[in-house]
Protein backbone atom coordinates (compact mmCIF):
# COMPACT_ATOMS: atom_id res chain seq x y z
CA UNK A 1 0.00 0.00 0.00
CA UNK A 2 1.20 3.43 -0.69
CA UNK A 3 0.23 7.01 -1.31
CA UNK A 4 1.57 9.86 -3.39
CA UNK A 5 3.28 13.12 -2.36
CA UNK A 6 4.43 15.60 -4.97
CA UNK A 7 4.19 12.76 -7.45
CA UNK A 8 6.41 10.49 -5.47
CA UNK A 9 5.21 7.19 -4.11
CA UNK A 10 5.39 6.85 -0.38
CA UNK A 11 5.05 3.47 1.12
CA UNK A 12 2.53 3.23 3.91
CA UNK A 13 4.92 1.81 6.42
CA UNK A 14 6.63 3.00 9.57
CA UNK A 15 10.07 3.80 10.78
CA UNK A 16 10.82 1.76 13.81
CA UNK A 17 12.38 3.83 16.54
CA UNK A 18 13.86 2.74 19.82
CA UNK A 19 14.56 4.42 23.10
CA UNK A 20 17.84 6.09 23.98
CA UNK A 21 18.87 8.77 26.47
CA UNK A 22 19.57 12.09 24.84
CA UNK A 23 21.21 15.30 25.92
CA UNK A 24 21.86 18.66 24.33
CA UNK A 25 25.01 20.69 24.74
CA UNK A 26 25.41 24.25 23.66
CA UNK A 27 29.00 24.89 22.74
CA UNK A 28 29.95 28.53 22.54
CA UNK A 29 33.19 30.08 21.44
CA UNK A 30 34.79 33.35 20.53
CA UNK A 31 33.33 33.04 17.05
CA UNK A 32 31.33 30.66 14.84
CA UNK A 33 34.45 29.13 13.47
CA UNK A 34 35.65 27.75 16.78
CA UNK A 35 32.20 26.82 17.97
CA UNK A 36 31.75 24.74 14.81
CA UNK A 37 35.15 23.18 15.05
CA UNK A 38 34.45 22.04 18.58
CA UNK A 39 31.01 20.80 17.65
CA UNK A 40 32.30 18.83 14.69
CA UNK A 41 35.06 17.27 16.71
CA UNK A 42 32.73 16.39 19.48
CA UNK A 43 30.18 14.74 17.18
CA UNK A 44 32.70 12.85 15.11
CA UNK A 45 32.66 9.06 14.98
CA UNK A 46 29.24 8.98 16.50
CA UNK A 47 26.97 7.70 13.76
CA UNK A 48 25.65 4.56 15.26
CA UNK A 49 25.99 2.68 18.49
CA UNK A 50 26.62 -0.39 16.41
CA UNK A 51 30.26 0.49 16.72
CA UNK A 52 30.41 3.96 18.29
CA UNK A 53 30.08 4.81 21.97
CA UNK A 54 27.15 7.10 21.25
CA UNK A 55 25.25 8.80 18.51
CA UNK A 56 25.76 12.49 18.19
CA UNK A 57 25.25 15.30 15.79
CA UNK A 58 24.95 18.99 15.37
CA UNK A 59 21.45 20.24 15.88
CA UNK A 60 21.97 23.78 14.69
CA UNK A 61 24.04 26.88 15.06
CA UNK A 62 22.85 29.08 17.90
CA UNK A 63 23.05 32.83 17.39
CA UNK A 64 24.82 34.88 20.09
CA UNK A 65 21.60 36.41 21.35
CA UNK A 66 20.35 32.97 22.29
CA UNK A 67 23.43 31.63 24.07
CA UNK A 68 23.96 32.08 27.81
CA UNK A 69 27.21 33.97 27.38
CA UNK A 70 26.23 35.94 24.30
CA UNK A 71 28.79 34.31 22.07
CA UNK A 72 28.18 32.31 18.88
CA UNK A 73 27.19 28.78 19.63
CA UNK A 74 26.41 25.40 18.23
CA UNK A 75 23.92 23.04 19.67
CA UNK A 76 24.90 19.41 19.60
CA UNK A 77 22.99 16.41 20.77
CA UNK A 78 24.32 13.18 22.13
CA UNK A 79 22.45 9.93 22.51
CA UNK A 80 23.39 6.84 24.43
CA UNK A 81 21.74 3.59 25.44
CA UNK A 82 21.84 4.33 29.11
CA UNK A 83 22.29 7.39 31.28
CA UNK A 84 25.57 5.98 32.41
CA UNK A 85 26.88 5.43 28.92
CA UNK A 86 25.55 8.76 27.75
CA UNK A 87 27.28 10.44 30.64
CA UNK A 88 30.53 8.64 29.93
CA UNK A 89 30.41 9.57 26.26
CA UNK A 90 29.68 13.19 27.01
CA UNK A 91 32.49 13.31 29.49
CA UNK A 92 35.07 11.85 27.13
CA UNK A 93 33.92 13.85 24.14
CA UNK A 94 33.68 17.13 26.03
CA UNK A 95 37.00 16.36 27.60
CA UNK A 96 38.79 15.49 24.40
CA UNK A 97 37.10 17.70 21.87
CA UNK A 98 35.68 20.79 23.59
CA UNK A 99 37.84 21.33 26.64
CA UNK A 100 40.81 21.15 24.30
CA UNK A 101 39.38 23.52 21.74
CA UNK A 102 40.33 27.19 22.07
CA UNK A 103 37.82 29.66 23.54
CA UNK A 104 34.96 27.22 24.08
CA UNK A 105 32.43 26.93 26.88
CA UNK A 106 29.59 24.47 27.30
CA UNK A 107 26.06 24.90 28.56
CA UNK A 108 23.21 22.59 29.19
CA UNK A 109 20.59 22.65 26.44
CA UNK A 110 17.74 20.91 28.23
CA UNK A 111 16.15 22.71 31.15
CA UNK A 112 15.85 20.82 34.39
CA UNK A 113 12.06 21.00 34.33
CA UNK A 114 12.00 19.39 30.89
CA UNK A 115 14.60 16.77 31.67
CA UNK A 116 13.92 13.28 32.93
CA UNK A 117 17.16 13.36 34.83
CA UNK A 118 20.17 15.56 35.30
CA UNK A 119 23.59 14.15 34.46
CA UNK A 120 26.32 15.46 36.72
CA UNK A 121 28.92 15.76 34.02
CA UNK A 122 30.70 18.50 35.89
CA UNK A 123 31.17 16.18 38.85
CA UNK A 124 33.82 14.32 36.89
CA UNK A 125 34.94 16.98 34.47
CA UNK A 126 35.99 19.37 37.22
CA UNK A 127 38.73 17.08 38.44
CA UNK A 128 40.69 18.08 35.38
CA UNK A 129 41.20 21.30 37.31
CA UNK A 130 43.41 19.38 39.71
CA UNK A 131 41.98 21.13 42.72
CA UNK A 132 42.08 24.58 41.19
CA UNK A 133 38.64 24.33 39.68
CA UNK A 134 36.13 26.82 40.98
CA UNK A 135 32.45 26.25 41.45
CA UNK A 136 30.40 29.05 40.03
CA UNK A 137 26.92 29.56 41.34
CA UNK A 138 24.06 31.60 40.00
CA UNK A 139 20.54 32.15 41.17
CA UNK A 140 20.69 31.23 44.85
CA UNK A 141 17.50 32.48 46.36
CA UNK A 142 16.59 34.54 43.33
CA UNK A 143 16.25 33.66 39.66
CA UNK A 144 17.20 30.39 38.08
CA UNK A 145 19.56 28.25 40.09
CA UNK A 146 22.57 27.24 38.02
CA UNK A 147 25.94 25.69 38.70
CA UNK A 148 29.07 25.77 36.62
CA UNK A 149 32.67 24.75 36.90
CA UNK A 150 35.48 27.01 35.97
CA UNK A 151 38.47 24.91 35.06
CA UNK A 152 41.79 26.62 34.57
CA UNK A 153 43.44 25.78 31.24
CA UNK A 154 46.56 27.04 29.54
CA UNK A 155 44.65 29.52 27.45
CA UNK A 156 42.52 30.86 30.28
CA UNK A 157 39.49 29.14 31.68
CA UNK A 158 37.12 26.49 30.47
CA UNK A 159 33.59 27.15 31.65
CA UNK A 160 31.32 24.14 31.85
CA UNK A 161 27.85 23.86 33.18
CA UNK A 162 27.79 21.30 35.96
CA UNK A 163 24.67 19.35 35.09
CA UNK A 164 23.09 18.46 31.82
CA UNK A 165 19.48 17.50 31.30
CA UNK A 166 18.89 14.08 29.87
CA UNK A 167 15.61 12.85 28.42
CA UNK A 168 14.24 9.53 27.35
CA UNK A 169 14.77 10.16 23.64
CA UNK A 170 13.90 8.43 20.41
CA UNK A 171 16.47 7.03 18.03
CA UNK A 172 16.06 5.25 14.73
CA UNK A 173 13.73 7.62 12.96
CA UNK A 174 14.43 7.11 9.28
CA UNK A 175 13.32 7.14 5.72
CA UNK A 176 14.81 5.88 2.49
CA UNK A 177 14.99 8.04 -0.57
CA UNK A 178 15.06 6.16 -3.85
CA UNK A 179 15.70 7.89 -7.11
CA UNK A 180 16.35 7.16 -10.66
CA UNK A 181 19.95 8.37 -10.45
CA UNK A 182 22.66 8.75 -7.86
CA UNK A 183 22.62 12.50 -8.43
CA UNK A 184 18.91 12.92 -7.92
CA UNK A 185 18.90 10.69 -4.87
CA UNK A 186 21.81 12.52 -3.28
CA UNK A 187 20.35 15.92 -3.97
CA UNK A 188 16.99 14.90 -2.56
CA UNK A 189 18.63 13.54 0.57
CA UNK A 190 20.67 16.66 1.03
CA UNK A 191 17.55 18.75 0.76
CA UNK A 192 15.90 16.49 3.25
CA UNK A 193 18.73 16.96 5.73
CA UNK A 194 18.62 20.71 5.30
CA UNK A 195 14.92 20.69 6.04
CA UNK A 196 15.49 18.54 9.07
CA UNK A 197 18.01 21.04 10.46
CA UNK A 198 15.12 23.45 10.84
CA UNK A 199 13.34 21.10 13.19
CA UNK A 200 14.41 21.58 16.78
CA UNK A 201 15.37 18.64 18.89
CA UNK A 202 16.51 16.36 16.11
CA UNK A 203 19.82 15.36 14.66
CA UNK A 204 20.86 13.18 11.77
CA UNK A 205 24.06 11.61 13.09
CA UNK A 206 25.41 10.09 9.89
CA UNK A 207 27.86 11.83 7.54
CA UNK A 208 26.15 14.92 6.28
CA UNK A 209 23.06 13.48 7.87
CA UNK A 210 22.92 10.73 5.29
CA UNK A 211 23.69 7.08 5.44
CA UNK A 212 24.44 5.23 2.22
CA UNK A 213 25.02 1.90 3.76
CA UNK A 214 21.94 0.97 5.56
CA UNK A 215 22.40 -2.10 7.57
CA UNK A 216 20.36 -5.06 8.54
CA UNK A 217 20.72 -7.04 11.67
CA UNK A 218 22.96 -10.08 11.34
CA UNK A 219 25.10 -11.46 8.62
CA UNK A 220 25.94 -14.70 6.91
CA UNK A 221 29.20 -14.42 8.78
CA UNK A 222 28.63 -15.42 12.34
CA UNK A 223 31.11 -12.92 13.71
CA UNK A 224 29.33 -9.88 12.27
CA UNK A 225 26.41 -8.22 14.11
CA UNK A 226 25.24 -6.28 11.10
CA UNK A 227 25.77 -6.23 7.41
CA UNK A 228 24.79 -4.31 4.32
CA UNK A 229 21.12 -3.76 3.84
CA UNK A 230 20.77 -6.23 0.96
CA UNK A 231 17.07 -5.60 0.18
CA UNK A 232 17.89 -2.01 -0.66
CA UNK A 233 21.07 -2.35 -2.65
CA UNK A 234 20.21 -1.62 -6.28
CA UNK A 235 23.29 -3.31 -7.61
CA UNK A 236 22.20 -6.72 -6.35
CA UNK A 237 18.52 -6.18 -7.02
CA UNK A 238 18.32 -9.30 -9.03
CA UNK A 239 20.74 -11.51 -7.16
CA UNK A 240 19.38 -10.81 -3.70
CA UNK A 241 16.25 -12.84 -3.12
CA UNK A 242 14.40 -10.24 -1.05
CA UNK A 243 15.16 -7.01 -2.88
CA UNK A 244 12.76 -4.19 -2.21
CA UNK A 245 14.16 -1.73 -4.69
CA UNK A 246 11.34 -0.71 -6.97
CA UNK A 247 11.77 -0.62 -10.66
CA UNK A 248 13.40 2.52 -12.00
CA UNK A 249 15.26 3.20 -8.83
CA UNK A 250 19.02 3.06 -9.14
CA UNK A 251 20.20 4.63 -5.92
CA UNK A 252 18.99 4.52 -2.32
CA UNK A 253 20.07 6.72 0.56
CA UNK A 254 18.84 6.63 4.12
CA UNK A 255 18.27 9.57 6.41
CA UNK A 256 18.47 8.48 10.04
CA UNK A 257 17.21 10.66 12.85
CA UNK A 258 17.50 10.82 16.60
CA UNK A 259 15.36 13.21 18.53
CA UNK A 260 14.40 14.25 21.99
CA UNK A 261 10.89 12.89 21.54
CA UNK A 262 8.71 11.04 19.06
CA UNK A 263 6.78 14.05 17.70
CA UNK A 264 10.01 15.88 16.90
CA UNK A 265 11.36 12.90 15.04
CA UNK A 266 8.16 12.49 13.12
CA UNK A 267 8.05 16.17 12.33
CA UNK A 268 11.61 15.95 11.08
CA UNK A 269 10.80 12.90 9.01
CA UNK A 270 7.89 14.73 7.42
CA UNK A 271 9.96 17.83 6.67
CA UNK A 272 12.70 15.67 5.21
CA UNK A 273 10.40 13.58 3.08
CA UNK A 274 8.57 16.63 1.77
CA UNK A 275 11.83 18.28 0.82
CA UNK A 276 13.11 15.12 -0.83
CA UNK A 277 10.00 14.65 -2.91
CA UNK A 278 10.43 18.08 -4.40
CA UNK A 279 13.49 16.91 -6.29
CA UNK A 280 13.10 15.72 -9.84
CA UNK A 281 13.98 12.09 -10.24
CA UNK A 282 12.93 10.87 -6.82
CA UNK A 283 10.70 7.88 -7.23
CA UNK A 284 9.95 6.26 -4.01
CA UNK A 285 10.22 6.82 -0.26
CA UNK A 286 9.94 4.19 2.37
CA UNK A 287 11.16 3.53 5.92
CA UNK A 288 12.94 0.74 7.64
CA UNK A 289 11.45 -1.32 10.35
CA UNK A 290 11.90 -4.71 11.88
CA UNK A 291 8.34 -5.60 12.52
CA UNK A 292 8.46 -4.16 16.01
CA UNK A 293 11.35 -6.30 17.18
CA UNK A 294 13.79 -3.45 17.57
CA UNK A 295 11.95 -0.73 19.42
CA UNK A 296 8.64 0.45 20.72
CA UNK A 297 8.22 3.48 18.49
CA UNK A 298 6.28 3.00 15.26
CA UNK A 299 6.50 6.24 13.34
CA UNK A 300 4.19 5.82 10.37
CA UNK A 301 5.00 7.86 7.30
CA UNK A 302 1.30 8.53 6.76
CA UNK A 303 0.94 9.86 10.30
CA UNK A 304 4.10 11.88 9.99
CA UNK A 305 2.99 13.50 6.78
CA UNK A 306 -0.50 14.04 8.04
CA UNK A 307 -2.06 11.97 5.27
CA UNK A 308 -5.42 10.49 6.18
Amino acid sequence: MSFMLNGVGIEDTFAEGFGMWGARIIITAKNRKWANIAAREMTGFATSVIACDCEAGIEREVPPEETPDGRPGVSVMVFGFSKKRLSASMLSRIGQCVLTCPTTAIFNGILEEEADDMLDVGASLRFFGDGYQVKMRMGDGWGERQRFWRIPVMEGEFLAEAKFGAVRAVAGGNFLVMGESEDATLEASERAVEAIREVPGVIAPFPGGICRSGSKVGSTYAFLKASTNTPFCPSIKHTSPDSQVPAGCNSVLEVILNGLDEPSVMKAMASGIKAATEVEGVKWVTAVNFGGKLGKFRMGLKDALGVK
Partner: peptide
Protein backbone atom coordinates in the same frame (compact mmCIF):
# COMPACT_ATOMS: atom_id res chain seq x y z
CA UNK B 1 44.73 39.70 32.90
CA UNK B 2 42.05 37.91 30.97
CA UNK B 3 38.53 37.97 29.62
CA UNK B 4 36.64 35.59 31.84
CA UNK B 5 33.79 33.87 30.02
CA UNK B 6 31.97 33.18 33.24
CA UNK B 7 31.61 36.85 34.03
CA UNK B 8 29.65 37.36 30.83
CA UNK B 9 26.87 35.26 32.28
CA UNK B 10 26.56 37.45 35.32
CA UNK B 11 26.88 40.66 33.40
CA UNK B 12 24.11 39.63 31.02
CA UNK B 13 21.94 38.74 33.99
CA UNK B 14 22.65 42.10 35.57
CA UNK B 15 21.81 43.94 32.39
CA UNK B 16 18.86 41.90 31.18
CA UNK B 17 17.17 40.78 34.36
CA UNK B 18 18.16 43.35 36.93
CA UNK B 19 18.27 46.47 34.79
CA UNK B 20 21.87 47.32 35.60
CA UNK B 21 22.64 48.96 32.28
CA UNK B 22 26.29 49.60 33.06
CA UNK B 23 26.93 45.86 33.13
CA UNK B 24 26.49 45.69 29.38
CA UNK B 25 29.53 47.84 28.84
CA UNK B 26 31.91 45.31 30.29
CA UNK B 27 30.88 42.18 28.37
Amino acid sequence: TFRPDFLKLYLRQLRDQLGVEAAGEYL
